Computed example of a mutant assay.
Amino acid sequence: MAGRLKTGVDVLDRKLDGGLPPGCTVAYTASPASQSELLLYQLTAARGTLYISTERSDDAIRHSIESTQARVGSPTIRHITGDDPIEDAHRLVSALPDGANLIIDTMDVIERTDVDAYRTFLSDLKTQMLETGSIAVLHCLESDQVPRNRSTTLHMVDAVFNLETNIGATELENFLTIPKFRAGGAPTERIKLELANEVEIDTSRDIA
């Protein structure tokens, strides 16, 4: 579809009619024990990327990106270490150049902040994405202790990507679903993915 920006992940771009619309914000939910970061790393191949880490150090992120065999870019990596993660994230996001990717990995730390301040942060984030024609992907880990602002995240973003990892007796299966996509045209079926050296469709069985 004309005007959409490629994600850098071929399977996603095909399923999304060419990619994501400029200004789009995405919540990417996954288990902390999954290989969900591999998709984030491949996003950096499409265009300049600001990669904000709230937990792992910038050196750890850089090492993981450089170690993967997938096609990746050279993102600007910043680790938020201050007592006010919203202020630190806002400062970094406000300097985002036009037509860039923004990745926040993970959102959990920021989602545990003040409700009103967090809602304002997401609103400002959306405005920045629209003004710069950029894409934001917010990595949201699933856990028993759900951050109090998680529902706000899922409500305010434009799209939700969910990675489901099933561990069986003999194999591990990954399925990507897109339950929310305000731009329309999202796939209605689960996409079975192979998460090894790169993100690709698993064609070993029928995709269900």
Rank of each mutant, 00 (worst) to 15 (best):
T25P: 10
T49F: 07
R190L: 15
Y28I: 06
V115R: 15
A159I: 14
L16C: 05
R62P: 11
R150C: 00
V93N: 01
A183F: 03
N162L: 07
I167S: 07
T120P: 09
S123G: 13
T127N: 15
A2Q: 12
L43S: 00
E131N: 13
N149A: 06
M156G: 03
D13W: 01
L154T: 10
A136L: 06
D202N: 13
D124E: 15
P147Q: 06
P187W: 00
L172F: 06
R205K: 04
A46L: 11
D124A: 15
K180D: 10
L195A: 05
G18H: 08
D114G: 08
L193P: 03
S204V: 12
E142G: 10
G48V: 13
T120C: 10
V160H: 04
A27W: 00
Q145I: 04
D202P: 11
E87W: 08
D59K: 12
E171G: 15
L5D: 04
I110N: 03
N166V: 07
E200W: 12
E111M: 12
D88F: 06
G8Y: 02
A208M: 15
T44K: 03
E164G: 10
A183T: 09
F181A: 14
S57E: 06
S53Q: 03
T68C: 04
S123M: 10
V93I: 07
G99E: 09
V137K: 00
L40G: 04
L154H: 10
I104A: 04
T177Y: 05
N162S: 12
E66L: 11
P75M: 02
E66N: 12
V26G: 04
C140S: 03
R4I: 10
D59P: 07
T81M: 14
M156T: 13
I80K: 06
T188W: 14
L172P: 11
D10A: 15
I61Y: 08
A208L: 14
I207G: 13
T152Q: 04
D98H: 14
I77M: 05
D59T: 14
D108C: 12
G48I: 13
G19F: 01
L154A: 06
D59R: 14
L176Q: 09
K180Q: 05
G18I: 08
E111R: 13
P75A: 00
V72E: 01
R14A: 04
R71F: 00
A46M: 07
E189G: 13
L16E: 02
N174I: 08
D98T: 14
A70K: 02
V160Q: 10
D116C: 07
S64D: 06
V115E: 10
D13P: 14
Y118N: 12
S143Q: 12
S53Y: 00
A27I: 05
L39S: 01
R112I: 07
L43Y: 00
L125A: 07
T81K: 15
D88Y: 03
L154C: 03
L12H: 02
A117V: 06
A117S: 01
D114P: 15
P97L: 01
A2T: 11
D108V: 06
T152M: 05
L176P: 09
L195F: 01
I191W: 02
T29V: 03
P22E: 06
T54S: 02
E142R: 09
Q145R: 10
